[in-house]
Design a protein around this nucleic acid. Sequence first.
DNA 1: GTCTATAGCTAGATAGAC
DNA 2: GTCTATCTAGCTATAGAC
Lengths: 198, 198
Amino acid sequence: MASPDMDADARESVAVAVQRALAEHGYERLTTAKIAEEYENSEAGLYYYFDSKDEMIAAFLEHAARYLSEDLLRVDTGDPERALRDACEFLFRTPEHEYAGIAVGIMELLSHAPYNETLREPLLDLETACLDALTDIVAEGVEQGVFREVDPRATAAFLLAAADGSTGIAVALEMDVVDDLQRGWTAYVDGLLADPSG
Amino acid sequence: MASPDMDADARESVAVAVQRALAEHGYERLTTAKIAEEYENSEAGLYYYFDSKDEMIAAFLEHAARYLSEDLLRVDTGDPERALRDACEFLFRTPEHEYAGIAVGIMELLSHAPYNETLREPLLDLETACLDALTDIVAEGVEQGVFREVDPRATAAFLLAAADGSTGIAVALEMDVVDDLQRGWTAYVDGLLADPSG
DNA sequence: GTCTATAGCTAGATAGAC
DNA sequence: GTCTATCTAGCTATAGAC
């Protein structure tokens, strides 16, 4: 293996192909043929780097986890309130959101986790990354006295659950609740403030 | 058609068969053969009452919507706080809950809604039934002065999203966040009270 | 490393006997 | 109405040429 990086690059481009195919067709209709359509090479070529379809999906999940934790949930420790509102703006996705299709795909995979050993761990890693990032933001806010003395982990878990659920009802189902949800989480974050007049 | 009720009964028992098979295998691995395993008759027999597998699933969703709105989210107008806590106890299911497997199945179907025309409407009806029931409870509480002057629909939408999302986080992944979620929604409901000492 | 071709399987749905 | 048998399509994964 002269260049392990070439393999890593190839696996990365398969992960992106899975992402595109998943956003377009959904997990239940995701086939290796559809992944290959979004890939530069043929369907058989996928199996040079992966032993199974599930491993290709796992590679996508690891890719998504990196994207989420590295780029989108970085804590601005200087301003926990701003950081939490920014995180909510991102996590409570609207159907127009660039990332919306991917979020629905992840949700579909998540709901299939009980029946799929291969995907369970990468999914756990992804959700844990989000939960930890939110917990850090809330904990920092409590420490600085910006937020009330709430339980950071309970607060983060409740917010993450609400965000995940909003993907299902507002994005996947296109239920007319986008404005209601926005008022809902805004009021929730307002209620966390130590000084409500703030 | 001498007896339309017989047809209704047969369709109902298919709905129950779908429910059992869905809880056991998940949507992605749900087959008509597995539905038939939970059904009193053969696989071909399913097609006497339904034209397709999707229609069988739709029948299950209508069955679940009736169950939810008729039996489990009835408003006790005398005690909105109690009604809301009871609804939350049910909606934020723990993995041990009898209904947990069904909730995961519904979540899986929900996330596939963008790609499945047949299932979208029954899913919308189901979620709407939950949202309306929660909205009624909150509105009643505000009217009685038990809750603060919150926006009933925004509050209900936020709670429903959190409950839906908790299914994925807690049940599907079996993450160690069930207790965190419980504290999260309890604190949220506490925060709705007009008289926190209540 | 990447391809075409295809093996091997399983799914949803139907035919036709009873 | 319900059955057994089966058709057809589409899937994952592999074989073997290049």
